[in-house]
């Protein structure tokens, strides 16, 4: 799907846990996430911390969308 969205002319960031799969399917902007069943959350955290974690990941995704890239790029979350 990521490739078709990109092909339609819309910049797209892929947020996923298994980065090698994302690279194989041809995503150009990739943000690694937490875990397969809960990519943008962590049930072990309290709700406030969990939302803060999600915000950090989403902010990284927005950085990815506003960064020019010429090839597949992984935007790790610090």
């Amino acid at each position: 799907m990521v490739k078709e969205i990109e092909r339609a002319g819309i910049p797209v960031v892929h947020m996923c846990t298994v980065v090698p799969i994302s690279l194989t399917v041809g995503a150009n902007r990739i943000v690694p996430t937490i875990a397969i069943p809960h990519p943008l959350g962590n049930p072990a955290l309290d709700p406030k911390e969990e939302k803060a974690l999600r915000r950090k990941l989403v902010e990284r995704a927005l950085e990815a969308l506003t960064t020019e890239v010429s090839e597949q790029t992984v935007f790790d979350v610090k």
Binding site: E4, P11, V13, M15, A61, L65
Partner: peptide, 24 residues
């Protein structure tokens, strides 16, 4: 591929500037 071809046209028509795609 077919799904995304279809809805990407709608996204373009709706003036969407960027997509966040999440996968599990």
């Amino acid at each position: 591929k077919k799904f995304a071809e279809e809805f990407s046209k709608e996204l373009v028509a709706d003036g969407v500037n960027a997509v966040i795609l999440t996968s599990t």
